[in-house]
Design a protein around this nucleic acid. Structure first.
Length: 254
DNA sequence: ATGCCGTCCGAAGGACGA
């Protein structure tokens, strides 16, 4: 079973890329982030044999789950902050696996309200992870975490020292989730690999210079981690014309 | 680099992303 995640930075602007990716890779589940629309443009994706469940929002955010298998939605949004209406979390059961597509807040600028919102959101995600662990359902939290876990996950870590993606408090909150007993799939299978990135800024020639960061992750529950056979980053879509600034990350579980 | 580019909304340019 192949599970992939991709921040498409507008599903409308990236629809042809999405069609190509699904056709060429046929993932069993694709988690999408940053739909940037209230209504998912579903027709051409459904025509490829994919079911779609999503949580949309006008102009900003938006997450989706795509699968050729039946998708049973278990939750939209995270508990713990009733006034939070941002579309950043959708969770569903697919083929006996609980899959969540998450778009974790960026948090910049750090001095603004956005940073405490990011940290609160991470605490809420941790609570959800605790519940899922207690339920013993195999699960994966997949998406744009907006976290650079370690300096080796950035081409130029010095550019990110004061950034919400890499601050010690951000990394600590990410580790706190992992330390519940989750497995970060890419690092688990490639413990020594450096220079592996999932995002390259549109600006300043970041892509041609390979000035990237690894911020898109798949976090597996213990039982699912035991079934992990492969995980990698597919850089191909980042090289396409009018690409998203993120590229897909995928894993295979037996 | 005080966002260099890209997308959205809405009809110019500001908000936002990371």
């Amino acid at each position: 079973m192949k599970i992939a995640t991709w921040n498409v930075n507008s599903v409308k602007a990236r629809l042809s890329h999405l069609e190509t990716y699904l056709t060429e890779n046929r993932p069993d589940v694709l988690c999408l982030q940053e739909l940037k629309t209230e209504e998912f443009p579903a027709a051409s994706i459904q025509a490829l044999g994919y079911n779609i469940e999503y949580c949309g929002q006008k102009a900003y955010n938006g997450v989706a789950l795509l699968s050729p298998h039946p998708i049973t939605v278990t939750q939209k949004g995270l508990a713990g902050e009733d006034e939070d209406l941002q579309a950043r979390y959708i969770e569903a059961e697919v083929q006996g696996i609980r899959v969540a597509s998450i778009y974790l807040p960026n948090g910049n600028p750090v001095e603004s309200e956005k940073y405490p919102y990011k940290l609160r959101w991470m605490a809420r995600l941790k609570e959800r992870a605790k519940q899922l662990l207690a339920s013993e359902v195999p699960f994966v939290l997949a998406g744009d975490f907006n976290i650079i876990p370690e300096n080796r996950d950035a081409k130029r870590p010095e550019q990110w020292v004061n950034d919400a993606l890499a601050l010690p408090q951000s990394r600590s909150a990410f580790r706190a989730i992992l330390n519940l007993g989750l497995t970060e799939a890419f690092r688990a299978l490639h413990p020594d690999r450096a220079g592996a990135y999932s995002f390259w800024d549109y600006q300043a020639g970041a892509w041609p210079q390979d000035n990237g960061i690894r911020i898109d992750h798949l976090l597996l529950s213990p039982a699912l981690a035991d079934r992990l056979t492969a995980c990698d980053i597919d850089k191909t879509p980042r090289g396409w014309e009018k690409a998203s600034d993120h590229t897909p990350v995928w894993c295979e579980v037996a």
